[in-house]
């Protein structure tokens, strides 16, 4: 039985196959409408989420399957003190596959050790969020037609942003990808990621605090939100939250075919006036998230 806990669980070939499957689902949705008939997905969300949970649920419904689950810890037995392991042992009796979000890092790994059905990590605190990374990769492929030979800018909170860390790790598998890391000093990419991923794989990267000076080079601009929930100190959050706000003016020097991605939700880091720019693909990215999750569910349930 296979799980998806960390993007590193997937080989480059498996990522390619998932992207290919998602593209086929987009092209021929009718072929997939009954693929998961009589199968159930359990969405165990111990922490609130709009996109990820609804995306998993929509994915399962579009495959003809059904969904059970809860959307906050308060409405589960976790509120009575039940362990993660006991919760998934129980849910394994009812569902064919589990998608779990949990505020504690490593909870989905614990779940996968106890479950008798496949477990998908739908986000564990500031740690991993592999289906977001798959979503990002699918979006890049659909917008640029490739995952190699790209200059990718990451802007905002590069310290706590788990989507940034996972996407950097995933893109480091491909040839000639250059990273441009734009953040305030306090939210720079952690040194262990620079050392263990970028330097270990001899990737080209530059660090800067100035978005406008580097924007002309970028093929992809991946914007992120400064996340209030990752700060222990409200004062630091307030000081840093408005560091970068993307506006049409700042996009003036960017390539005409640059793609702007964002894992969402956004607060104010992308002005809504940018939404109508054809380079803004973050809502297409949301839709891609559903398709890649459909592909993933099919793979883990071993449905052809």
């Amino acid at each position: 039985m296979k799980n998806l806990i960390d993007i590193r669980d997937l080989s480059t070939e498996e990522i390619r196959q998932l992207i290919e499957k998602a593209n086929d689902i987009i092209a021929h949705p009718e072929t997939y409408r009954e693929k998961c008939r009589y199968k159930k997905l359990a969405t165990l969300f111990f922490e609130p989420s709009t996109r990820t949970r609804l995306s998993f649920e929509a994915a399962m419904y579009e495959l003809g399957g059904q969904v059970i689950g809860f959307s906050e810890a308060a409405s589960s037995s976790a509120a009575k003190g039940e362990s993660v392991a006991d919760t998934v042992r129980t849910v394994s009796c009812y569902a064919d596959i589990i998608a779990m979000r949990h505020p504690k890092e490593g909870a989905p790994l614990v779940a996968s050790m106890a479950a008798t059905v496949p477990v998908i990590n739908a986000g564990d605190g500031g740690h991993n969020h592999p289906t977001q990374t798959l979503t990002d990769l699918l979006t890049i492929v659909r917008e640029k037609g490739r995952l190699d030979n790209l200059t990718v800018g990451f802007c905002g909170d590069l310290k706590f942003g788990r989507t940034v860390h996972s996407l950097i790790a995933a893109l480091s598998r491909y040839d000639n990808v250059k990273f441009v890391l734009v953040s305030p000093e306090e939210l720079k990419l952690p040194s262990y990621i620079k050392k263990e991923i970028l330097q270990a794989k001899h990737m080209q990267y530059v660090q800067t605090t100035d978005l406008e000076s580097v924007i002309p080079e970028l093929d992809i601009l991946y914007m992120t939100r400064v996340q209030r929930e990752r700060f222990f100190n409200e004062e630091d959050y307030l000081r840093l939250k408005d560091s970068y706000i993307l506006t049409p003016d700042k996009l003036a020097g960017a390539k005409k075919d640059m793609a702007i991605l964002h894992p969402l939700p956004r607060v104010n880091e992308i002005s809504t006036t940018v939404d109508s720019d054809p380079r803004a693909v973050y809502f297409k990215q949301v839709l891609n998230g559903k398709f890649i999750r459909m592909a993933l569910i099919l793979k883990l349930l071993e449905v052809e």
Binding site: A85, H102, A107, V110
Partner: peptide
């Protein structure tokens, strides 16, 4: 923030 801080007997 690790699950080991809350999960019993892990």
């Amino acid at each position: 923030r690790c699950i080991t801080s809350v999960e019993r007997e892990l």
